[in-house]
């Protein structure tokens, strides 16, 4: 039980590098579509898109652990929530300006991630999952109970959006573009991380931790660095989250919030770059549309969990790829 992943070798899919013209054109079209979205859609959809971008950064950061590191965390909302709380508290109560509050939030959350990593990475597999869950539940309890600081169940309100370079972000379109820029930066930096030599080593520790250790890699350190890096990007998502809502409540630290992130990763396809983004689109849309018709988001979330795990365990993106390959392969 020390290394669950040791016996179950997950064959990494061969990376295809077909930079065909069609593919580049597709990406360019997608990029233009994303940038131009506010020009042709209403406020509701622009806001929905902003929420998806924030959720996607969060899911991408969790995917570094779950997909690339084989470390299933059930407490990733800690970092989103903590960063949002830090920013809101230092801005509304601590008397800091936006830039300093944001820096404190990012730095503070990353330090906490480093500390949590020290604790949680004493175990792997299910132990890691249980410890991350317990740690995040402790933070959730603190947010609820330490009312003199966190304002308890009322949450912290009074947050405003920053004005980077004097640009007002209060309009839906402006905030969307701001989120898109941050999302772009996060996506690229996380992609570089996973595609680098370090990323390969990380995948190595996921598939064959013992062999990696025998080869001289410091498995623990690789995992810890990934944990901290993922915590940092979770904090970035948390900043955007608190700017978007101008408010933060303990539910953002709850197991439901962590589970939504994990569902986005698993539903889209863990260990792929596109998967968590697709998963976030699915989860955010489902949450928004479903809650317009039914009150039971938690029940729906649970059912979606069951359906995904039982019927499409590899996720929508690899699942669809597999079906597509079968389809095109059958046509030959």
């Amino acid at each position: 039980m020390t290394d669950v992943t040791d016996n179950t070798t997950i064959a990494a899919p061969p990376v295809e590098r077909r930079n065909s013209g069609l593919r580049i054109a597709l990406y360019a079209a997608l990029g233009i579509l994303l940038v131009a979205l506010p020009l042709f859609s209403g406020d509701f959809y622009i806001n929905l898109a902003s929420q998806i971008l924030i959720a996607a950064i969060f899911a991408l950061s969790l995917n570094l652990l779950v997909g690339y590191g084989g470390l299933s965390s059930l407490g990733h909302a800690s970092f989103l929530g903590l960063s949002a709380y830090f920013a809101a508290w230092f801005f509304t109560r601590g008397g800091l300006d936006h830039t300093s509050a944001a820096l404190v939030a990012l730095l503070g959350t990353t330090i906490v991630a480093g500390f949590f990593g020290l604790i949680a990475l004493r175990a792997s597999g299910l132990g890691f999952l249980m410890i991350t869950l317990a740690l995040s539940q402790v933070l959730w309890g603190v947010a609820f109970r330490w009312a003199s600081v966190t304002n308890g169940d009322n949450g912290l309100s009074g947050m405003t959006r920053p004005m980077p370079f004097g640009i007002d972000l209060n309009g839906p379109a402006a905030f969307y573009w701001f989120s898109l820029v941050i999302f772009g930066i996060s996506f690229v930096l996380m992609a570089i991380f996973t595609e680098s030599a370090f990323g390969s080593a990380l995948r190595g520790t996921r598939d064959q931790p013992r062999r990696m250790a025998a080869l001289g890699f410091d498995v623990w350190l690789i995992r810890w660095i990934t944990f901290v890096y993922a915590g940092f990007w979770g904090a970035v998502a948390g900043l955007l989250y608190v700017y978007y809502h101008k408010y933060i409540h303990p539910t953002s630290l709850s197991i439901t919030a962590s589970a939504e992130g994990l569902l986005s990763v698993i539903a889209g396809g863990s260990g792929t770059l596109g998967g968590p983004v697709v998963g976030s689109i699915l989860v955010v849309m489902l949450k928004n549309y479903a809650s317009a018709y039914v009150e039971r988001w938690n029940m729906l979330l649970g059912i979606v969990f069951l359906v995904i795990v039982i019927f499409m365990p590899e996720g929508l993106v690899p699942g669809t790829k597999r079906l597509w390959k079968r389809f095109t392969g059958g046509a030959k």
Binding site: L301, G302, L306, V309, I310
Partner: peptide, 24 residues
């Protein structure tokens, strides 16, 4: 039982079930 080879899947299913039971 159906997921006995997939320990992460099992955890996720129990998590999903806990949401369903709590909401019920």
């Amino acid at each position: 039982r159906k997921l006995s080879s997939n320990s992460l899947g099992q955890v996720l299913v129990t998590l999903g079930m806990s949401f369903i039971i709590a909401d019920a």
